[in-house]
């Protein structure tokens, strides 16, 4: 069974990095198969940015995503462009301050994470993606937090490794808290 994930936002938010870290964590440390693709060329340099991950217990055959179970959207444009493709029972994760969502996503779980705000509290909004990733790992359970932290060296600059881990943990803890509280909006299908 494949799980398809789309990470999206605008250029500079570290969207591709999100997919690389998650893919590396899954395929190197969580004993899964992961295939990552991304849009290239002038299309990829515009405001919308997206990277896709197919996760499976077996070798991935078809490389692209067709029915994502998880969408992370860190910009309004990305949310508008991609929210419709999430499958029933799937999960949407958006930045609480950057994305204004529609009121209902019947049959899907919508999480709003203040990733940019948390990152700013940590000193720089360049850590937004790691906060979001931590939150993603906690609420979806697709990937283990240990594997994610293991995947970071080499994918974030050495001098920012510690603070990136901190950002990840902040998002992760927040994710655990909200799932415990069950404050997600889960309207009936």
């Amino acid at each position: 069974m494949n799980t398809e994930i789309r990470f999206s936002g605008f250029g500079g938010q570290g969207i591709i990095r999100c997919a690389l870290i998650t893919g590396k964590a899954l395929s190197l440390y969580d004993d899964k198969f992961a295939t990552m693709t991304q849009a290239f060329g002038p299309e990829a340099r515009g405001s919308a940015c997206s990277a896709q991950l197919v996760v499976s217990d077996e070798k991935v055959l078809y490389p692209y995503i067709t029915a994502p179970a998880v969408l992370m959207a860190l910009s309004q444009e990305a949310y508008e462009k991609y929210h419709g493709e999430v499958i029933e029972g799937g999960t949407l994760i958006v930045d609480a301050d950057l994305v204004k969502t529609r009121e209902e996503h019947p049959g899907r779980t919508l999480w709003k994470v203040p990733a940019t705000r948390f990152a700013e509290e940590l000193g720089n909004r360049m850590f937004t993606n790691l906060v979001a990733l931590g939150f993603f790992a906690a609420v979806t359970g697709v990937v283990s937090d240990a594997a994610m932290k293991q995947a970071l060296p080499g994918l974030v600059p050495d001098r920012f490794l510690k603070i990136n881990i901190k950002a990840f943990e902040k998002g992760y803890m927040h994710g655990l808290e909200v799932t415990k509280l069950d404050t997600a909006e889960v309207p009936a299908a």
């Binding site: 893919g23 395929s27 190197l28 992961a34 295939t35 990552m36 693709t37 290239f40 991935v60 490389p63």
Partner: peptide
Amino acid sequence: DEVVGHMTER
């Protein structure tokens, strides 16, 4: 091909 060249895997 472009897919194989740009796809990331283990």
